[in-house]
Design a protein around this nucleic acid. Structure first.
Lengths: 331, 331
DNA sequence: GTGAAAGCGCTAACAT
DNA sequence: ATGTTAGCGCTTTCAC
């Protein structure tokens, strides 16, 4: 790989001048500029982002970190798509890390990201009070949280109105005539699991239905826990007539169990899922779902992050997007 | 962020000694080692990967690049999961780029990756004769191709037996009694589209069924082209009685069209898709599919890449994994 | 066993 | 308009 020095030598100038034409600052003679540009072409020179990054924290290295909990979950994939698209448009590359809901892994990735000297970070933190992350924020790293917040910290947050989203889903089930509605939740530690439970409870209450503990099950936010917890619910002496599932993967798992038991949806058991997917209409049956604007979340996050990089002093924003109930035939 | 210098100062030694204890090479007195370790703890020192990377090409920077065509496609997401898992186990971080089948974007990302001084690259190239990529390989960057190869180049390749996979699917359809079988393919430029067509043709031939041009449609490998090309096929005066779809997204798109037209599967039209998904059994109807071992592909790629990083001279390997036909009820 | 110093590729202040 | 140089944080050779 040719270096700036090589270019300078070939063009018969100093590296400073090369740097000037590269970054387009400072005056430089048209003739020398041409010479240098030719040398760059000839040598197929490409500036080293690494050296640039090392040199000055002050200048943008055009590298963003993204740290997400679970790439298996199509919701996060969509968020990622949004992030990737807008980052690309703004000339940022992305270093993507997936911690699979594993806190140890998250910590390692945070350290790596830090030591890669990224310009900013988009993260869905494992815990709302992650100490390492909080420290990084305090140390001045621009951070935007998605899907989950970070307590007592100076970060922008992009999320969705989980309470209302869950409320709408459960209320819709009740209005459709279902009486015993279960909720299969994700990890207890994740705020959205709790917020969705809150919405669930509110809907019951608003319709005068008593809350029953046995109808709410917390799992680990993955496919398998959807399978198993649904199994548990259906085995109840007094099983539910409808299920509200806490995320994409759980929905798919629950569906699997229901199909295995040859139950009809929605006649035997209705289901409404949190998170819509592009192919939810091709599921059996087409799934009624609470749609989060995942791509939009990703884009907004990048937007806020770039703003913060450019102006670290600007006060923080909490952006709450709305969910939308997509009515199909599973309920 | 504390630097090595800070640590050295605090421990009252030179940076060389700090470097020695950090990298565990060269002798160093137990007492000084202790002092240094304490200083590291006190300052929460973290080495800069950037500086390390800049300093020496010779040493591993523990950074791998991954360049994939389409993160919307669950197949690539699974490959990515495999990559991520094994990379993590081997202490590598990943810089992930998604070029969305856009060659311009691919080129930009290749340049970025290069200038980030990655240790190695896993890529599913847009074209088999990508000149920039070929140059990077020639310049000594360790590269492993997945899903697609790179012509005349010294790279390891991990892929799947596309011909046999397609053959099995189409042969299965024929054996099940279908006579007019269509193939909705992905982009013509992508080798796997062609190889799967080859398998499709071979199966027709083996069963004495004439090839009909109007039954094969090439699209852009995305959901939307699945929707549209399926529409075209169903509108034919003599429409197919079965469809073989060239990838995940196409399958989902085709399914959407079939459902929109209220056709029964498989009575009115059967479908077998290339690529299985975790939730294919929850589709309507459960999808018969050609399963690629996507996670395995990712893992193998990392394995080969790390080997190549450690021994650039080792001769190249082309690893072909088998597909598996998962019989469900869409055919 | 430890330190001094060169250098990786670049930017930016200072000279000329 | 252009060149010289210090320095970003680290590794590594060569002294001591």
């Amino acid at each position: 790989m040719a270096s700036m020095n090589d270019v300078a030598t070939r063009a018969g100038v100093s590296i400073a001048t090369v740097s000037r034409v590269l970054n387009n600052n400072g005056n430089v003679n048209e003739a020398t500029r041409a010479k240098i540009n030719k040398a760059i072409k000839d040598l197929k020179y490409q500036p080293s982002r690494v050296a640039k990054r090392l040199r000055s924290k002050s200048i943008s290295s055009n590298l963003l970190g993204v740290l997400i909990p679970d790439i298996e979950n199509p919701f996060y994939v969509d968020v990622l798509r949004g992030i990737e698209e807008l980052a690309y448009n703004n000339n940022y590359a992305i270093i993507m890390c997936n911690f699979g809901q594993d806190e140890k892994k998250e910590k390692l990735y945070l350290e790596i990201l830090q030591s890669e000297a990224i310009d900013g970070l988009i993260v869905a933190p494992a815990r709302e009070d992650d100490p390492l992350l909080k420290k990084m924020v305090k140390d001045g790293l621009p951070v935007v949280c998605v899907d989950r917040g970070l307590k007592d910290s100076n970060v922008d947050v992009v999320l969705v109105d989980n309470v209302t989203g869950a409320f709408t889903a459960v209320d819709y089930l009740i209005k459709s005539g279902y009486k015993r509605i279960a909720y299969i939740a994700g990890l207890v530690e994740i705020p959205s699991s709790l917020l969705r439970e809150k919405g669930y409870r509110k809907a019951l209450e608003a319709n005068g239905i008593p809350f029953e503990k046995e109808l709410v099950r917390f799992g680990d936010s993955k496919h398998k826990s959807g399978v198993e917890l649904c199994e548990e619910l259906l085995k109840l002496t007094n099983p539910p007539d409808a299920i509200f599932t806490g995320n994409n993967l759980i929905t798919l798992g629950a569906l699997e169990t229901i199909h295995k038991r040859k139950l009809r949806i929605p006649e035997d058991i209705a289901i409404v899922g949190f998170d819509d997917m592009q192919w939810s209409s091709s599921l059996n049956p087409p799934l009624t779902a609470v749609r989060q604007p995942a791509i939009e979340i990703g884009k907004r996050a990048v937007e806020l992050l770039i703003q913060r990089i450019q102006d670290p002093e600007r006060s923080c924003i909490q952006m709450t997007l709305n969910t939308q109930l997509i009515e199909r035939s599973s309920s």
